[in-house]
Amino acid sequence: MMAALRPRRSAMPGFGITMGVTLTMLSLVVLLPIGALVIKGTAFGPEAVWEVVNRPRTWAALWLSFRLSALAALFNLVFGVLLAWVLVRYRFVGRRLFDAAVDLPFALPTAVAGIALTTLYAPNGVFGSVLAHLGWRVAYTQWGIFVALVFVGLPFVVRTVQPVLATMDRELEEASATLGASRTRTICKVILPMLMPAALTGVALALARAVGEYGSVIFIAGNIPMRTEIAPLLIVIQLEEFNYDAAAAIGLAMLAISFVLLLAINLLQVWSRRRIENA
């Protein structure tokens, strides 16, 4: 009995070495760069950081970046779940091809994506020329940024929801139907709540990716200050002026806002998971 209370070696061997490698990797790849950013920012001084962040142009860029990233992530939530549903539940010609195509935004260098999207949506492009007739400019407006962010964030929700959907017990749906629930009710009360935690993970990933996205957006945004200038561009502009402190300050602001947003999504996830377990 006493032996059980002492911390004992896991039955699984290799804890020491895997934990060691994990900590080293995590430190080198994630913690050190972020730590350097935080140190750079704090050395600059909180007032100085606030002075850089609290400018109309910085606020405009942050608001633009986070607003469009959130909208793109929500768009991807809806269409990602739908896409995952189609890929998992139906059998049709070209399904595997579609499935593979979902990952393309991961594989494609973002600059290529940006240039390709700009070519399509520019007023003389294939889509852009049609939209221009309707008086709708996409490239070089906030719409263009939105399109690019939807593109780079697309795979996340699909890939997080897909496995959950594939392993989901069909008996639950059948039970719901035999108990007299309508299709809409089954979807809303049975299927979606079960997909929720996975979908939220996807949203968090898509949001994080979109907030930091530079390569593809820079080609399709007009980059006009106060209108289509994203926060990462503002950082690059500060770097061009050799103004490393101000760049770190904006970086810190982005880090803080991202942290709050991801924390909120995590809490939402915990809440939705509890709801399933209690149900």
Binding site: T118, T119, A122, P123, N124, G125, A139, Y140, I218, F219, G222, N223, I224, P225, L233, V236
Partner: peptide, 21 residues
């Protein structure tokens, strides 16, 4: 009167020449 502020000179040339802006 500038609708697009590219980050570099070659980018601006592309916007003008290829995109027709």
């Amino acid at each position: 009167h500038v609708p697009v502020l590219d980050s570099g000179a070659r980018g601006a040339t592309t916007t003008f020449a290829q995109r027709g802006i």
